[in-house]
């Protein structure tokens, strides 16, 4: 019996000691755990902020891509539509010019075109080319330009004249087509403004 109670006492001691150790370990672990938790909260918060800011950046990037792409697409469609409209205006205007009566006003126009062209080449001794429709008007105007000659060769144009120096070294295209071509960018701007396109 005596030896049993001594053993029990020893076991109790050991149990108490172990219990103390376990409690102390648990306390330490608890403290460690708390410390780790506290540390990780800051880390977590900064990770959280980073994820949010990365996400926001990515969202901004995607928004920029979508908005930018669709803006460009819409603008391009508008440009093509506008160009088609401008072309239609041009075609109609050219048709009207082609069908203009060759009256006295037109004769004055041919005269001024001839004057302008000979002045630019610096001589009236020139060969003049025109289309079939304007041949008579040009022929009658040429009398006031000494040394000028109407070529039998017919050119394809809406109206106006093309002149060439006698030796063929200098040429000046003063047809209505060439004039329109020279002024086309300005005319396009004017037409576009009629469609409500602002500068």
């Amino acid at each position: 019996m005596g030896s049993n109670s001594a053993m029990e006492q020893t076991i109790d001691k050991i149990i108490k000691k172990s219990e103390k150790q376990v409690v102390s370990d648990l306390n330490d672990a608890g403290l460690n755990f708390k410390q780790n938790l506290d540390d990780s909260i800051t880390k977590l918060e900064s990770e959280y902020d980073k994820i949010l800011s990365d996400g926001k950046k990515e969202a901004d990037k995607i928004e920029k891509q979508i908005v930018g792409g669709s803006d460009i697409e819409a603008r391009n469609k508008q440009l093509l539509a506008l160009e088609a409209a401008v072309d239609r205006v041009f075609t109609t205007a050219l048709e009207q010019i082609t069908n203009t009566d060759r009256n006295s006003d037109y004769s004055n126009l041919i005269n001024s075109l001839l004057q302008e062209s000979t002045k630019i080449l610096g001589t009236t001794e020139v060969k003049v080319y025109t289309n079939a429709k304007d041949k008579n008007v040009v022929q009658s105007s040429l009398s006031s330009f000494s040394g000028s000659k109407l070529s039998s060769e017919i050119i394809d144009c809406i109206g106006g004249v093309k002149i060439e120096s006698k030796d063929g070294a200098m040429k000046f295209d003063n047809t209505i087509d060439a004039k329109i071509e020279r002024l086309k960018p300005l005319i396009r701007k004017e037409i576009a403004s009629k469609f409500g396109v602002k500068e």
Partner: peptide, 26 residues
Amino acid sequence: VSKEVLGRVFDGLGRPKDGLPDPIAD
């Protein structure tokens, strides 16, 4: 030139290279 040149692609001489018409110039 005009504000419309933004978003456009041109060649080395300033001619459209994106299949769109010449910009309406200001």
